[in-house]
């Protein structure tokens, strides 16, 4: 458990460094939902779209190379198809409505004390906690 905390801190620092590189290098905010969302809905165009595709290439490709060396980790994702689809739809819809997710609002927003980032993070943490409570402890589904 304690080792997990250190891994969490180390991985967290890497996430923050990745966001710092994108900000100080390209002047962009590292928000995963905004980057993916604007590529799939076509609102990112030209040079902006190309750069976002490169970012996604690194995001998907680096872990893919890492598992070739260290072997795959576990995602422990549920096998319940309805839960997967419902969760995916909610995450996609919600992050685009809110204009950000854990990386954009959570990491990049809170670190500059953005009111929207802080409020969004409080709402998704609360909603996530209530959802886990209901679906795990009351309904026993997840």
């Amino acid at each position: 458990m304690i080792a997990d905390y250190w891994m969490g801190l180390a991985g967290g620092l890497m996430i923050g460094i990745a966001a710092s590189i994108l900000l100080l290098g390209n002047g962009r905010i590292m928000g995963a939902s905004g980057i993916l969302g604007s590529v799939v809905d076509g609102s990112a165009r030209g040079r902006d779209r190309t750069e976002k595709l490169w970012f996604m290439g690194g995001l998907i490709g680096a872990p893919a190379l890492a598992i070739l060396i260290f072997g795959p980790g576990e995602t422990h994702l549920t096998g319940n198809i309805s839960v997967i689809i419902a969760a995916g739809l909610l995450v996609g819809l919600g992050t685009r409505l809110a204009n950000g997710c854990t990386s954009g609002h959570g990491v990049c927003g809170i670190s500059r004390l953005s009111p929207r980032g802080i409020v969004a993070t409080l709402w998704y943490l609360l909603a996530g906690a209530v959802t886990v409570y209901l679906f795990r402890h009351i309904m026993g589904l997840i």
């Binding site: 995963a32 994702l77 969760a87 995450v91 919600g94 992050t95 854990t102 709402w123």
Partner: peptide
Amino acid sequence: QLAIGSILFGMGWGLAGLCPGPSLASLSWG
């Protein structure tokens, strides 16, 4: 819109335990 979107996102995050960044990062072994 910020509140409603974040609440919907949180519900999905809780249901599956995945958010946008990790869902892309784990694509190769997920």
